[in-house]
């Protein structure tokens, strides 16, 4: 099933920060990792990922450095900063609150009385 793009786009910073929590990655690895972990539900375009990563870097949530990757080529790795970890925690909390609320509504658990 194709996911509605508007559902995905708002949560992209959260997903990218979460991926980096596990270790430093470069852009291509992030897209592949996201695809695998979401069981092909999230197929993020590189053209969306890089502006997003650069925006996170501007905010100081991630830092980047160049290093030679396993394939012997230079790649730009991204690293989650302490500020990024704090932002990730906040975003996770907000997402969980939102998801629980949506879940309750969908299950009909909210009374209008």
């Amino acid at each position: 099933m194709e996911l509605d793009k508007s559902l995905v786009s708002g949560s992209m910073p959260l997903l990218v920060l979460k991926l980096l929590e596990g270790g430093d990655l470069y852009g291509y690895q992030m897209i592949e990792e996201l695809r695998k972990r979401s069981e092909d539900a999230f197929r993020l375009k590189a053209g969306t990922l890089y502006p997003l990563l650069h925006g996170l870097e501007e905010k100081g949530l991630v830092t980047a450095y160049e290093r030679t990757a396993e394939n012997g080529k230079a790649r730009r790795y991204y690293h989650l900063t302490e500020r990024g970890r704090d932002a990730l925690r906040e975003k996770e909390d907000a997402w969980n609150t939102y998801a629980r609320a949506v879940g309750r509504v969908l299950k009909g658990g909210v009374s209008l009385a």
Partner: peptide, 11 residues
């Protein structure tokens, strides 16, 4: 900026 995109395209 183009260099990073190029690396990605090659991968």
């Amino acid at each position: 900026l183009v260099r990073e995109l190029e690396q990605h395209l090659m991968d």
